[in-house]
Design a binder for these strands. Structure first.
Lengths: 136, 136
DNA sequence: CTTGACCCTGTAGTTGCTACAGGATGCATA
DNA sequence: TATGCATCCTGTAGCAACTACAGGGTCAAG
């Protein structure tokens, strides 16, 4: 399949596919006589793996490690679990951080009575950290 | 105060302060004979405003608008409230997205029995989108 | 008078893409 | 046969919001 077809099949931007090849995340495929990239099913599943991992928020480097493991089925699986667990912890930390932030913002917005900016509670709150709940 | 003092006073990296000046978020301060930047209390509070807003996740462009409002106390405050409300919505959306992601990751990790990568459930799940809850 | 901490400018790197510019190819239609 | 038009190619530059040098100047203490 050509790059446009792979793009549609996996929901990945064409430029992104070429980018993944450039950084060595996807192997360079064979070329047609016209120098067009020609992909097979292996490329497709590898790209799906990458996209799915990206959707789950793994970084490119993490995905590189995960792909490496998947390319060496004899290796120990613990590393994959470790990467995923660490990532899960980071996601949980991020959720906690954003929740604190949401509480903060909720406190700030909605206090506007529509007056002049001079009396604006929103702007006042942004300038004065002392009004915060201490979450950050 | 010199840039290093401002840096410590606001918890902002020196390079970041110079960056903010370069992009026009902070006004260029006066210079000493030795060409050192010399800041006053106004710079300090403006930088605090910027840092606090950044901690709350506002983009540089949003902060530019908020600063603009704060520089023109006669303007209507509604714009500030609108920016903050929109941002709050985005934060809430992000939390929802990350929560779905956390559920997904929770399902994936911890299924590893420590065997070979060939049988790894983590890697398997990443390759097979069909195992997902459909959240993404 | 030298050592070390600080400051300066300017440029390049980071992450994960995305968007061209400028050109070649493939296929269908007039 | 000509001519569109979609698709492909390479290479480079841009995005956000910093961060990290390189290569130099300044200043206060010992």
């Amino acid at each position: 399949m050509k790059i446009g077809e792979l793009s549609k099949a996996t929901g990945t931007n064409i430029e992104t596919i070429r980018y993944y090849e450039r950084i060595g995340l996807l192997p360079a495929p064979a070329r047609t006589d016209a120098n067009y990239r020609s992909y097979g099913p292996d490329h497709r599943s590898r790209l799906s793996f990458v996209r799915h991992s990206r959707e789950l928020g793994f970084t490119i480097e993490e995905i590189r490690s995960l792909l490496d493991l998947s390319d060496h089925p004899d290796r120990d699986c613990g590393e994959a679990d470790r990467i995923a667990s660490t990532h899960l912890e980071q996601v949980e930390a991020k959720i906690a951080q954003l929740s604190a932030l949401r509480d903060e913002l909720t406190r700030i917005v909605g206090r506007c009575r529509g007056g002049a900016a001079a009396d604006c509670r929103v702007i006042e709150a942004l300038g004065d950290h002392g009004q915060c709940g201490g979450a950050h």
